[in-house]
């Protein structure tokens, strides 16, 4: 097993906002006590619905946010204590790729300027060799012939090409880890497959690790070594077998909601209750946060907040009181 490179210890991010009515301040725990180890060279997927805290987690890993409670450590060093030089090195070794490549690229800079800016900032190549260096980077992300792309502006590129540029910008610094926040969701299916392919190629050639935030379980199943499922700020299940043998009811719900291209499927066509009760985002004191949506809830679920514990095959960890019974039950898919 590879050594861990990034680790989260009891991390919480609390946003304070004004209440819907009146001036009372309300705390929103976007991330609520997460422990997570990320190992060198692994691809870790973080999945969950919007509002589950997965993007907040990514921001903390990128040092764009500092956790309210707990700490993030990089190779054993708490991020909070990093000096200026160490911080600069951290930023080079932990790179980001975002959801919308169009808005993460400067529209008034050509590809050459965008990438050249980063290369110069980190002094990774001599001025004279810059152009050929950049061309090689573009070729590495599958933009061929590279000369054709260097002079272009982002709007002259397709979404997939833009995302490749964003990946090139991250990969050229030879990072240890790339944090990708929904890198696929603005792309077409065939382009998604290409980007997934590119990421798994880069893993082999450069041994870079990925933390991929996504709500697309299908795509993550194809690339992730381990997957963490988040719900309301907590990791509720993590492991390498969650697609084949999900245990937590929420993981099952997510897997079940995937629409597979099966024309004889009946999930959309099945009669459903006319009104849908919206999921409330209020965090309850004590008790399991999935309680309101859980079909398996029992008494203890309302009283005790379940903690992650090892369960079943592989290195799966689940936060559910009934994990033993559920892991014995046949899987839904």
């Amino acid at each position: 097993m590879n050594p861990q490179i990034l680790s989260l210890e009891g991390v919480s991010q609390i946003y304070t906002s004004r209440g819907v009515k009146g001036l009372r301040r309300v705390d929103v725990r976007a991330v609520d006590g997460v422990d997570l180890d990320i190992r060198e060279g692994e691809t870790l997927a973080i999945v969950g619905e919007s509002g589950s805290g997965k993007s907040t987690l990514a921001k903390m890993l990128l040092m764009l946010n500092h956790p309210t409670l707990g700490q993030v450590t990089y190779r054993g060093l708490p991020l909070k204590t990093l000096g200026q030089e160490e911080r600069s090195r951290y930023r080079r070794q932990v790179q980001a790729v975002f959801q919308d490549p169009a808005s993460s690229l400067n529209p008034r800079m050509t590809v050459e300027e965008t990438l050249g800016h980063v290369a110069n900032r980190h002094n990774i190549v001599a001025k004279a060799e810059l152009r050929s260096f950049l061309a090689a980077q573009l070729a590495a992300v599958g933009l061929d012939p590279p000369e054709q792309y260097l002079g272009r502006y982002p709007h002259q590129l397709s979404g997939g090409q833009q995302q490749r540029i964003a990946i090139a910008r991250a990969i050229m610094l030879k990072p240890k880890i790339i944090i990708a926040d929904e890198p696929l969701s603005s792309l077409d299916v065939s382009v998604q497959a290409q980007i997934l392919q590119l990421m798994s190629d880069l893993r082999k050639t450069t041994n870079v690790g990925f933390v991929i935030i996504s709500h697309d379980l299908g795509a993550m199943q194809s690339i992730a070594d381990r997957t963490a499922v988040m719900y309301k700020g907590r990791v509720v299940e993590i492991g390498d077998a969650i697609y084949r043998s999900p245990i937590h009811p929420y993981t099952r719900l997510l897997l079940d909601a995937r629409l597979l291209p099966n024309p004889r499927g009946t999930r959309i066509r099945s009669p459903v209750p006319r009104s849908v009760v919206p999921a409330t985002s209020l965090v309850m004191e004590g008790g399991c946060r999935f309680l309101q949506r859980c079909p398996h809830a029992i008494e203890v679920c309302a009283a005790v907040d379940p903690q992650l514990r090892p369960m079943g095959a592989g290195a799966t960890q689940v936060a559910c009181h009934r994990a033993e019974e559920l892991s014995a039950a046949p899987t839904p898919i």
Binding site: E49, L254, L259, R267, I268
Partner: peptide, 11 residues
């Protein structure tokens, strides 16, 4: 989200 998508499509 996938779970919400399913509900909206059912509706």
């Amino acid at each position: 989200d996938a779970t919400v998508q399913l509900q909206v499509l059912q509706t």
